[in-house]
Simulated scan of single mutants.
Amino acid sequence: MHILVISHDLSIFQHLHPNYDGEGKFSVKSSFPKAGTYKIFADFLPEGSAQQLAKYDLIVEGEEHYETVNSDKELIKHVDDLIFELKFDDLAVKQHVLMTFTVTDSKRNKITNLEPYLGSAGHVVIVSEKMDEFLHVHPKDEAAKGPDVEYMTTFPISGNIKFGDNLNILESFIRFHL
């Protein structure tokens, strides 16, 4: 199960993996860094069934401070000593799109020892600006070790997109306009 907690202004994005407590119950701890409205997505696959998505709205009380979240000028994120670069073969709506994350260290040495996280080299979550479109994508090669991890998807609509990728323990967030 994947739990996504996203603020309505797209400035907060949490990709969580709850613990299975038995008897069909899961638990997860999270904190909300600011007041406001959040959308919670529960993405899960019941045994013997198709993948399902449940959506919930949550209001965190307090004085709201909405941020204007602009598109990133470069699709590169630096986290600790690692650099994550996102590239697309052709960015178009309602077309198959190949997305590639390339992982290097701060000296631009290629990282080739990525370990699977929840059975996969990575998990990508893509959310539209209005949070009415949600995609959860796994790599083409679940056993990819890097430096490239490729994903194939189709964007159903154009607009501002919030993109979160979970490669091992990294959460990188990229915003772009499609």
Rank of each mutant, 00 (worst) to 15 (best):
H2Q: 13
I3P: 03
L4P: 05
L4I: 13
V5C: 04
H15G: 02
H15T: 01
H17L: 11
D21P: 04
E23S: 13
G24H: 05
K25Y: 04
V28W: 02
K34E: 13
A35C: 04
G36R: 08
Y38I: 11
D43K: 07
P46M: 08
E47R: 12
G48Q: 06
L53I: 07
I59K: 15
G62Y: 01
E64R: 11
E67V: 03
S71F: 13
S71Q: 13
K73V: 02
K73G: 02
L75P: 04
K77Y: 03
D81V: 10
L82F: 12
I83E: 15
F84M: 02
F84Q: 01
E85L: 08
F88W: 09
V93Q: 13
V97C: 05
T100Y: 02
V103G: 02
S106R: 14
N109C: 05
K110Y: 09
N113F: 05
E115M: 14
S120V: 05
A121F: 03
I126G: 01
V127K: 04
V127D: 00
E129P: 13
D132P: 02
E133D: 15
E133W: 02
E133K: 12
L135F: 05
V137R: 09
K145Y: 07
D148S: 08
V149T: 05
E150K: 15
Y151V: 00
T153V: 06
I161Q: 01
F163N: 07
G164F: 01
L170A: 15
F173K: 14
H177K: 14
L178T: 13
